[in-house]
């Protein structure tokens, strides 16, 4: 199973009211359950699976009782990437006004507090600042298009 997909599943469960969630892909069964603040991930792989498949579950099993954040450190490249998400449903604008320059471009270095964009809903203009310092590696939404609550807007490579 793709580790990124697993991470997304854990995040989804974490944010939702669900306390337990399981999914099966081929022979691999993943069960995610929530106890108190952190999430716990359980893997159960049948004994007859191919060796290359069992490697991942074993690695995760060791961190079974630790929090999700610690677990994702296993892949430092994506750990360093930070998503900036939308606090509201609305329309995404990259510039303060229709004829103005965008707040930021891909490749720009931003600090915590740098304004990245505006999301507008019902004439409510929401100015979104970066919550980390780093380099903008990707802008995930087109200018003047709708965004959902919690939708990722920017990918920032943290300093």
């Amino acid at each position: 199973m793709d580790l990124n997909l697993l991470r997304r599943l854990i995040k989804l469960v974490e944010k939702s009211e669900i306390t337990e969630f399981s999914v099966q892909e081929g022979d691999l069964k993943v069960k995610i359950s929530k106890n108190g603040s952190g999430s716990v991930v359980n893997f159960t792989a049948p004994t007859n699976v191919a060796p290359q498949n069992t490697q991942i579950p074993q690695a995760v099993q060791q961190t079974q009782e630790s929090s999700v954040k610690e677990e994702s450190k296993e892949e430092p490249k994506s750990e360093n990437l930070h998503e900036v998400r939308s606090p509201i449903v609305g329309t995404f604008y990259r510039a303060p006004a229709p004829d103005a320059d965008p707040y930021v471009q891909v490749g720009d270095h931003v600090s915590e507090g740098t304004v990245l964009c505006i999301v507008e809903a019902m004439k409510l203009m929401n100015e979104i600042e970066s919550d980390v310092s780093g380099k903008i590696v990707k802008i995930l939404v087109e200018n003047a298009t709708p965004v959902e609550y919690n939708q990722p807007l920017f990918l920032i490579e943290k300093d």
Binding site: M122, K123, L124, N126, E127, I128, D131, N150
Partner: peptide, 27 residues
Amino acid sequence: KWPNDVLINKKKISGVLIETISKSDKI
């Protein structure tokens, strides 16, 4: 008038402009 204009006899007497500042998804 949706979302937030205040009208009398179809004429505008008041307007509201709300702006918020968020750090990522936290207002």
